[in-house]
Simulated assay, not measured.
Amino acid sequence: MRLWLIVPVLMAAVLGARPPYAQQVDFVIDATLPVRETELPYTLNLNLSAVDTTRIGVGALLDLREIQKIVPERLANNAIVDNCGLQVRLDDLSFEAKVDAIDLDGEVTITIFECSRTGERDFQRGEEKNAILASMSTEATVEVRDNCAYIKLIDLTLTAPEVQREQVLEDDTLDSVKELMLAAVDLVLKETPLCPELPAELASLDPVYEKGGPREIGEGGFGVFLDGSVDVSPSTILDILTVLQQQELIPGRP
C-alpha cells in the first residue's frame, strides 16, 4: 500500500475511528460554538478519504440539531433591539434546513415608547405608545470564508395583523424595525462563524475548505457541510507517525 493511502488508516488508529474501507475514515467529534458569553454544543462528523498521491479529501458535517433546540429557548422573550424609543422581542422562533437555505419563522413583539432627550447624548424612555405583534419569516444561507462557515440572512419579512396594518404602514414602523433587526442579527452572525477545529491529534493536517452550505439532517434537522482537502506533505505524515509512537500504537525509534 502506498504511504499516502496509509494516512487515513493511521488517523483511524489514533482516534479510534473505524475505516469503512482502506481509503476512507469516518469519525465523530464533540464541539462547541462560542456565542457571546456562552457555548453551544454541536457534533462534527468528519470524513477523510484518499483522493490522489498528494491530497486527502475532507468532508465536515456540522450537526447543529442541539443548537436548533437551544437557541429558540434562549431567545424567547429577549430583546434583540432595545433602544430608547423601541424594543423588539423575538417571542417564538423555529428554523429548519432545506436543500440550499435555512427557513426561519417566528413571532415578534414590537413595543414603541415615548423618548425624550435629557442631554447631548442621553435619552430617557417614557410611556409605552403602542405594541405590535408581527409575524416574521426569513431565509438564511451559508458562506465559506477563511475556512469558516458564516450564516447570513438573505432577507426578512414582517407582517402585522390586519387591524394594525394601516397604522404601521403609515409610519413605516415595520420597515424601520426590519432594518434594525437585520443589522442586529447580522452583527451576531458575523461574530459567531462556524470554524470546525480538529482534535490535537489531527491539528497538523490543517484542512482547507473550499465550499459548503446548509444540509438537512433527518427531517428539517439543521446542519452545515464543508468540503475541502488536506495537503499530504512528508511533515504531516511524520506528525501522524509521532502521535502513533507517543500512544505506543507503533514502535518508537530504535
Rank of each mutant, 00 (worst) to 15 (best):
S137N: 12
S137W: 14
S137Q: 15
S137V: 03
S137L: 04
S137Y: 07
T138R: 03
T138P: 00
T138I: 02
T138M: 08
E139Q: 13
E139F: 11
E139V: 12
E139M: 13
E139H: 13
E139S: 11
A140T: 10
A140F: 14
A140N: 06
A140K: 11
A140D: 06
T141Y: 10
V142S: 05
V142E: 01
V142P: 06
E143A: 05
E143H: 10
V144N: 05
V144E: 02
V144G: 02
V144R: 02
V144K: 08
V144I: 14
V144P: 00
V144T: 05
V144W: 08
R145W: 04
R145I: 05
R145D: 04
R145F: 15
D146W: 03
D146G: 03
D146H: 13
D146A: 09
D146I: 05
D146L: 13
D146R: 10
N147E: 02
N147D: 12
N147W: 06
N147I: 09
C148I: 14
C148P: 02
C148R: 02
A149I: 04
A149F: 12
A149H: 09
A149V: 05
A149P: 13
A149D: 09
Y150K: 04
Y150P: 03
Y150F: 13
Y150M: 03
Y150H: 08
I151V: 12
K152I: 15
K152Y: 03
K152S: 07
K152F: 02
L153F: 12
L153A: 10
L153D: 06
L153E: 07
L153N: 07
I154R: 15
D155N: 12
D155Q: 09
D155W: 12
D155E: 15
L156Q: 04
L156H: 08
L156V: 08
L156Y: 06
L156T: 15
T157K: 15
T157N: 11
T157D: 15
T157M: 12
T157E: 12
T157Q: 10
T157P: 01
T157A: 13
L158Q: 08
L158I: 04
L158F: 03
L158H: 07
L158T: 06
T159M: 14
T159D: 15
T159L: 09
T159F: 02
A160L: 14
A160S: 14
A160I: 00
P161K: 07
P161F: 06
P161L: 04
P161E: 08
P161D: 04
P161C: 04
P161W: 04
P161Y: 05
P161S: 11
E162N: 01
E162V: 01
E162D: 11
E162H: 01
E162A: 09
V163S: 10
V163L: 08
V163G: 05
V163D: 08
V163E: 15
Q164V: 06
Q164T: 09
Q164S: 14
Q164E: 12
Q164R: 07
Q164G: 01
R165K: 14
R165M: 09
R165G: 04
R165W: 06
E166G: 01
E166L: 09
E166R: 08
E166I: 00
Q167M: 14
Q167G: 01
Q167V: 06
Q167I: 00
Q167E: 14
Q167Y: 13
Q167K: 01
V168W: 00
V168H: 00
L169S: 07
L169E: 15
E170A: 11
E170R: 11
E170Y: 11
E170K: 14
E170N: 11
D171G: 01
D171I: 07
D172T: 10
D172F: 11
